[in-house]
Computed example of a mutant assay.
Amino acid sequence: MSLDLRAENVLKNLVETYIHDGQPVGSRTLSKLPQLGVSSATVRNVMADLEELGLITSPHTSAGRIPTVQGYRLFVDSMVRANLPTQEAISQLTDRFEGESDPEKLIAHASDVLSDLTQFAGMVVLPSQSLTRFHQLEFMRLSKSRVLAILVTEDGRVQNRVLSSAEGFSESELVQAANFFNHRYKGNTLQDVRRLLVEDMQTDNDEMHNINQSAIQAASQVIAEEEQSNQNDVVVSGEQKLLGVPDLCQIETLQKLFDAFKTKRDLLDLLDRSLKAEGVSVFIGEESGFSSLGECSVIASPYHVDGKVIGTLGVVGPTRMSYDSVISVVDITSKLLSQALSGSSQS
């Protein structure tokens, strides 16, 4: 939808005034803004046109108007210019990531800082197992029948598994199995590693036949357990801050919203949509497709390791939010988390 310059200016200033004040905006209020420079009657006529287009509405019988979801959408798509965070905010962001190499702690820091800087709920989706790539596997004998398996993924996460086996493995067999695994499957997703391993075991592969099959089965077990134990999950911080948002103060609204935080299913589905997006995605109110988020906006962005998208992060807040500021915070946080995770995967 395109508007002429006057209508665009009226809508832009109406949305910005409503976001700032939280009260329906009347034509007289807008006409006093020096950046518009038109009479109250002119503003009133333009507002009538905007209402007919479904971009603004009246919440009650007063003369004030508020933006609809469609009005917010046009505002975000055409009129918002992301503001750079303050130097204080940038320092707060960089301080959280500086000197940290543990991927799980980095993800928790990202969720916390998103909430702290926006005063809404911050979220980070853990890397999807369909995207997580295998980097390295090592074995260490603990006893005759117990082996410690150390799995490293390309996003820098390290997982340990203790494997029990009735058949004892020699050190050379464990080294041989690990070397084969690392050489053949490095860089593949965990899902692909499992598939390729099955295919390799079914084919007449001399290299595979020369390796202790029980050791290879042990390696396969580690991959399978890692997939099962780390299904997509989302780290949420600061959801309690939404209790103080006037726009969300209705008991029914809060109950639906906190149910969404508890089950996480709707949040995961919504954030997954932004995985393939370039840059920041904005879902406003009913655009999410979930009634639990009907009074909220979700601003999300993918994050990367070495240029590969592995997850998403974002903010949940009311539809009446400072989109320019929140978009900037989400954008810079995704870049800083990507940079920190890429560094940790190489350390």
Rank of each mutant, 00 (worst) to 15 (best):
K186V: 12
S143P: 04
R194A: 12
V158F: 08
S229Y: 11
E207T: 11
Q129R: 10
N188W: 09
L148D: 05
D206M: 12
S165T: 06
H135A: 15
E100G: 05
L126N: 09
L117W: 00
S128A: 13
D200V: 08
A218P: 02
H135V: 08
Q136R: 12
T203C: 11
I211H: 02
V147E: 02
F97P: 00
K144F: 11
F139Y: 08
N212V: 10
Q136I: 06
V152A: 09
L137M: 06
L163M: 12
K144A: 14
K186Q: 15
L197P: 00
H109F: 11
L197A: 04
L93W: 01
L106F: 02
F120K: 06
L163P: 00
Q213N: 13
T153V: 13
G99I: 04
F97T: 01
L114F: 03
D204G: 08
L197N: 03
Q119D: 13
L114H: 00
Q217S: 15
L151M: 06
V175P: 08
I150Y: 04
R161C: 07
L93Y: 01
L142V: 07
F181K: 01
L106N: 00
L197G: 01
K105G: 05
L114V: 01
V125Q: 10
Q176P: 08
S111V: 03
S220Q: 14
D204T: 10
S220I: 05
S143K: 02
E138R: 09
V124G: 00
D116P: 06
V124H: 02
E100Y: 06
N182T: 04
R157A: 09
R195P: 07
I150T: 07
S165Y: 03
L151N: 00
E104P: 05
M201N: 12
F120P: 05
Q221S: 15
V113M: 09
L148K: 07
F139N: 00
F120R: 08
N188G: 05
E199D: 14
Q159F: 14
A149H: 00
A178G: 04
T189F: 05
I223P: 00
N179Y: 08
Q129P: 12
T189M: 07
D192K: 13
A149E: 00
F169N: 00
E171V: 09
D95N: 13
D112C: 08
V158W: 06
A219P: 01
G168S: 14
V147L: 05
S170P: 05
L151Q: 01
N188D: 13
D95F: 12
D155M: 02
E100F: 07
Q159W: 10
A224R: 09
F139H: 01
Q213K: 14
D155T: 02
E104A: 13
E173C: 07
M201R: 14
I223C: 01
L93N: 01
N182G: 02
E226T: 11
S115L: 03
I107V: 11
R184D: 04
Q176A: 15
E167W: 12
E154C: 10
R184V: 09
M140E: 15
